[in-house]
Design a protein around this nucleic acid. Structure first.
Lengths: 151, 151
DNA sequence: CAGTATCCCTTTTGATACTG
DNA sequence: CAGTATCAAAAGGGATACTG
């Protein structure tokens, strides 16, 4: 993930025979990184919690139930490296480190919200799709059993 | 990932002491699922390729360089279960299976595009953040070495 | 063609212990 | 307090072989 564009370069180069594909080709290049970032287990929560407020490491840790110290550190480092959050160390004893969204982070947060809104608006549809799919799958499994018995 | 809301239920319940947090609390519930879906290694490419066109299994496989047969199947099943794509089997020999975006899938695709646009607009900033971070990290490493030598 | 079933390896994540 | 280091567990993903 750090070595950039490993294999799969094929679809990073612009056009197909019959149509111009504007952005899916970049999916593996830049989009993939920030997508991997916001989609990983804890980043989204961190970004959401830092909306309009600064938080200390321990505050984040308490707020995000279930995160390990290690993963919170890793997550924060990644977000910082991407320029989405800032990390401020106060040279006091005991140490104090504050995290906050950067302007870039705030801007991303706005975009993410539209995705969250979409999900909220469509969670019912998705749930229904799951039910239907599972119901069909179970039915087909049943068919199999019947056919198997007749042989 | 199939067992729904495992542990970490703490932040799925609405409000904090000092402020109402509207949506980050749901991040682990519904948003997480569709985020995990669109962020996994191949889903985004599939959704992008199916924009405005139907494709067969083998066409998708050829179009997505590097995907294994297994992972393409798994990806398509997940997307189908979420109601984002439809799967049409033609009872012919040899078999033919067509995949297409559902209205729900099309609607999600629209939203994803805004995320992609954001990424394209800000990839320069992110790259600069990386450089700066790495430069600082290297510098601090150097500091360490100097301090170590003096002891 | 369009899958399914297995095996195996790599990456990610979590638990635990230790430190400036 | 805010980490780092180490190790073990688990998930993700690929190669291969087989099937309706």
């Amino acid at each position: 993930m750090e070595d950039g564009t490993s294999k799969a370069l094929g679809y990073c180069t612009g056009t197909y025979d019959d149509q111009v594909i504007q952005w899916d080709t970049r999916a593996d290049c830049d989009v993939r990184r920030i997508l991997d970032r916001i989609a990983d287990k804890w980043s989204l929560l961190v970004i959401a919690l830092l909306d309009r407020q600064t938080m200390r490491f321990s505050e984040l840790r308490r707020a995000i139930d279930g995160v390990s110290q290690r993963m919170l550190t890793v997550t924060l480092r990644h977000l910082e490296r991407d320029g989405l959050i800032s990390r401020t160390v106060y040279p006091v004893v005991p140490p104090r480190v504050d995290y906050a969204l950067t302007p870039l982070g705030i801007s991303l947060h706005q975009v993410i919200k539209s995705l969250v809104t979409w999900t909220e608006d469509h969670q019912g549809e998705i749930a229904r799709a799951h039910d239907e799919y599972d119901r069909r799958a179970e039915q087909e499994e049943h068919q199999q059993a019947v056919l198997g018995a007749s042989v």
